[in-house]
Computed example of a mutant assay.
Amino acid sequence: MTTSTNPNGTTGNGIGFWKVLGIIAVVLLALAMVGPLLKGLFWIALFGLAIYGGWMLYRSRSANRPNGPTSV
């Protein structure tokens, strides 16, 4: 009974342990970089939305409305 192996000593039945470990390491590094970036962008977007809402409220209050209600 003989077993066939590749020249590098692997049986060739799937990807190797080191490839799987490398893929996992790359994914974890990518998540470690993207996570804080998204967290920071969330607060910047929230701040920008608040400024935009305030600006729209200011514009709607200061606009001249000939047919709108007038204050006495």
Rank of each mutant, 00 (worst) to 15 (best):
M1D: 07
M1R: 11
M1L: 02
T2E: 05
T3L: 02
T3G: 02
T5V: 11
T5A: 00
N6D: 06
N6K: 05
P7W: 07
N8A: 12
N8H: 03
G9T: 00
G9I: 04
G9A: 04
T10K: 05
T10S: 05
T11S: 05
G12T: 06
G12H: 01
N13M: 10
N13W: 02
N13S: 00
N13Y: 07
N13A: 00
G14K: 08
I15H: 01
I15E: 07
I15A: 01
I15P: 03
I15D: 09
G16Q: 03
G16A: 06
W18A: 00
G22N: 02
I23H: 01
I23V: 00
I24M: 05
I24A: 07
I24Y: 01
A25R: 09
A25Q: 10
V27P: 06
V27D: 01
V27M: 10
V27H: 06
L28T: 09
L29D: 07
L31V: 15
L31K: 05
A32N: 11
A32L: 07
M33Y: 07
M33G: 09
V34M: 11
V34F: 13
V34A: 05
G35I: 09
G35P: 05
G35V: 07
G35W: 14
P36M: 02
P36D: 12
L37I: 15
L38I: 14
L38P: 04
L38M: 12
K39C: 09
G40E: 14
L41F: 08
L41S: 04
F42Q: 12
W43A: 05
W43R: 08
W43N: 12
W43K: 13
I44R: 00
I44N: 04
A45W: 09
A45K: 15
A45P: 00
L46S: 08
L46V: 14
F47W: 10
F47D: 08
F47R: 12
G48I: 08
G48F: 13
G48D: 00
L49C: 07
L49I: 10
L49H: 04
A50Q: 13
A50T: 09
I51G: 02
I51F: 11
I51K: 04
Y52L: 11
G53K: 09
G53M: 14
G54I: 13
G54D: 15
G54S: 13
G54L: 07
W55F: 14
W55N: 15
W55D: 10
L57N: 15
L57A: 15
L57P: 02
L57K: 09
Y58H: 15
R59Q: 12
R61V: 15
N64S: 10
N64T: 13
N64L: 07
N64V: 14
R65L: 10
R65N: 12
R65G: 03
P66H: 00
N67T: 15
N67Y: 14
N67P: 02
G68K: 06
G68Q: 05
T70R: 13
T70E: 11
T70H: 05
T70K: 15
S71E: 14
S71P: 04
V72S: 09
V72K: 06
V72Y: 02
